[in-house]
């Protein structure tokens, strides 16, 4: 096996205390990161040039109206007080009032976040198994025509900007063939099957964007595993190819794939602005974009922090999964 884990101790004993320590440490790092993120998000939104009241009310509003607006919005208080007020509210689930729409931020971000989760879930269910399968087939048939076809197709789609992929899918599957709805939002009161049907086209776009990347990582890991001593030993023991691939190659090659997939979860939930715009989907990416465009600072800050939390949770879950699949990691990290 390669020397990737050479600094860790494969022979160390496993105890509950060590696992607990490992998780605690990871959680601590996540919280520190989140704190730094919250300060950065708040500072960058607060320090943007321009008076908030003036930006919202427009140039023709009187100074008096601007001052009243700023006072009511609480933005005339010291910045530290504003930060503490915001972050304590965020922790309690009170995200404040949208400056743009004058309604609770949570009433807008909540449904958008759930929508993003739905789209991410459908895309995830499609792209992860498909990419792993593609990477596995390509890795096992290294150098063959199949390998080249999978690799080149995947890379090509990844290289195409997402708005191009999305528009082509809309044109072909939505308008020319009429197979799928071109908007991602199902009519009010639709059942789960209809909602999934509406989410298929944007999910296909995401599959094309992510397939090449995830499949390539899986392929590389598969090749590494196929060449590893334990695989050779397994064959020598007389196991069938299916047993070797299922029990040794796939299991070992999933580790880097999990890391890659975990990082994409954050993107799938918070980074789909282009997809959300083109499929007119009320996701969190579009909410954040609109908030930034209209200087709705309360919505912008909470939206960005929420996406940050998603990224960190996804990474934390990946770390835990990783450590469950590979004990050497938790001991190395817990030291």
């Amino acid at each position: 096996m390669s020397g990737r884990w050479s600094t860790q101790r494969p022979d160390a004993p496993q105890t509950g205390a060590q696992i607990y320590r490992f998780l605690l440490k990871r959680l601590g790092y996540a919280l520190i990161t989140l704190f730094i993120l919250s300060v950065l998000v708040f500072a960058s939104a607060s320090l943007l040039p321009g008076d908030i009241g003036r930006n919202i009310l427009g140039g023709l509003a009187s100074e008096r109206d601007v001052a009243i607006f700023n006072h009511n919005a609480g933005v005339d208080r010291p910045i530290v007080v504003q930060y503490l007020d915001w972050i304590s509210g965020f922790v309690r689930g009170d995200l404040g009032t949208s400056l743009q729409y004058n309604v609770p931020v949570s009433s807008l971000l909540g449904p958008a976040f759930i929508n993003s989760l739905k789209l991410a879930a459908v895309a995830f269910v499609l792209v992860v198994p498909l990419s792993i399968l593609g990477g596995l087939v390509a890795g096992l048939r290294r150098g063959s025509l199949t390998d080249r076809a999978i690799t080149i197709t995947g890379i090509s789609f990844t290289a195409i900007p997402e708005f191009v992929t999305a528009i082509v899918l809309i044109l072909v599957l939505g308008l020319w063939l009429g197979w799928l709805p071109v908007s991602a939002t199902a009519p009010e009161g639709s059942n789960v099957a209809t909602q999934i049907e509406y989410l298929l086209l944007p999910s296909f776009a995401l599959v094309l964007i992510l397939f090449g990347y995830i499949a390539r990582i899986t392929r590389a890991s598969v090749i590494e595993s196929v060449d590893a001593d334990y695989t050779r030993t397994a064959y020598l023991k007389g196991l069938t190819s299916r047993q070797v691939v299922g029990g040794h190659v796939l299991r070992n090659s999933l580790l880097p794939t999990i890391a890659v997939v975990a990082t994409q979860v954050g993107y799938l939930i918070g980074g789909l602005l282009v997809i959300e715009k083109l499929f007119n989907y009320n996701g969190i990416g579009l909410r954040i974009y609109t908030a930034a465009q209209n200087k709705d600072y309360t919505m912008l800050q909470s939206g960005v922090l929420l996406v940050g939390v998603v990224y960190l949770v996804a990474t934390l879950v990946a770390d835990v999964l990783y450590s469950v699949l590979n004990p050497r990691i938790r001991y190395g990290s817990a030291e």
Partner: peptide
């Protein structure tokens, strides 16, 4: 996005 609405009407 204009393009999304155009697709919505055509679709």
């Amino acid at each position: 996005e204009d393009a999304a609405a155009v697709a919505g009407l055509l679709g």
